[in-house]
Design a protein around this nucleic acid. Structure first.
Lengths: 207, 207
DNA sequence: TAGATTGTTAATCGATTAACAATC
DNA sequence: TAGATTGTTAATCGATTAACAATC
């Protein structure tokens, strides 16, 4: 089953909102309620849910718990995946703290840095290794996903190093577009582009 | 002139890469060279450049400096825009340091926090104000864009507060979808969704 | 029942890409 | 000139939305 990228993004958002819904004690939800949470249309919600093969009931809508579980089956692996952070600068630290413990099936298990003053210790409970240990530690911790938060001029070599060490997926926070072999999934996450997009639209609003 | 959102995103990326190109002493560039930098097709580059009404030459391609300037005219305002950061936690601090001085026409001029231990001082050269001063300081500093990096349960009230204070654009880093009046431009920048997207595709690669 | 909802196809909208004339 | 490039239209692809039958 191949799902459109846009559907995956929305499924991730559905789940996070459904978890809040469930925590609030609500056990069933209609497509238009999910839609309102995300400011999209109810047709789109129903279509996404159709694509993942789930069925609601006409009277009560969707079973929140079942839907959460089904989305989990699609996004997560059974044992979960282990994640490392490349570069423990401001952004790396912030992301580490931000993500730590947030997603049970996506565990941050290591950080890597070039600076020997940072390595060999724990940061927020996570071991910080020197970049030279990357290959060994990726195997040791069964790391499948790497987040790149190094300065832009180190991004390419860091990505290559991750690929050589057998990583499966990369989320790149540096604003250098990377070129990776097809078997490694790459997602670019570019803060400056987002900010400039806001600037462009804001400018239009100003006039 | 209305440009597609996707074109705006690429223009931002073109410019950043063109600045590097120019710094390297290269004065002219072909569409296929730009395309290779971003891993897209040269047709798309030419079409985007067509949309902004610029013309290259057949022999030498595009004048790098002119193209940079033209993209600047589209994205930036003449005097630039002032930006504030809502919430000076790990993410806020990281973004502040990351963006500081990076884009001359998008100046970070203030941070706001609820914690009085952080307020009334400078952080990385930027004044940190208490959230109660938001309305006054936004006017004082002519701030048009706000970045939201507060915890998810404070995101909605923070956004409302920004809107009431007359902000024009918001970049939301919290993973709560916001509901804003049409005159305020909103861009959602959701780290967890990006990470889960990587997780989904990585999972597919694993099997 | 009447009204509300789901599930799904068909139509529409928007973005990318193919094709190619014009030009240096 | 031949070859490479730009600029642009038309075709294609993909994603969203409209429409509606089925059902409780």
């Amino acid at each position: 089953m191949i799902l459109p990228d846009k559907t995956i993004e929305r499924l991730s958002q559905y789940r996070r909102n459904l978890l809040i819904t469930l925590a609030g004690g609500k056990e069933f939800i209609f497509s238009h309620e999910i839609a309102r949470l995300l400011h999209i249309t109810s047709v789109q919600v129903r279509r996404d849910i159709m694509l993942i093969g789930y069925n609601g009931t006409l009277r009560r809508g969707y079973d929140v718990k079942e839907l959460i579980e089904l989305i989990g089956n699609i996004i997560d692996t059974e044992q979960g995946q282990n994640v490392c952070i490349m570069g423990l600068g401001n952004l790396g630290k912030a992301i580490l703290k931000y993500l730590y413990g947030k997603r049970p099936k996506l565990r941050i298990v290591a950080a890597f840095d070039i600076n020997t003053e940072k390595t060999g210790k724990l940061y927020s409970g996570i071991p910080v290794y020197h970049i030279d240990e990357l290959g060994d530690k990726i195997k040791e911790h069964s790391i499948t996903i790497g987040l790149i938060t190094v300065p832009v001029d180190k991004a390419v070599e860091t990505a290559d190093h991750l690929v050589k060490s057998g990583i499966s997926g990369i989320l790149n926070f540096s604003s250098k577009p990377l070129n990776l072999p097809a078997h490694v999934y790459l997602e670019e996450y570019d803060m400056i582009t987002s900010l400039e997009k806001v600037a462009y639209h804001t400018k239009r609003n100003l006039y």
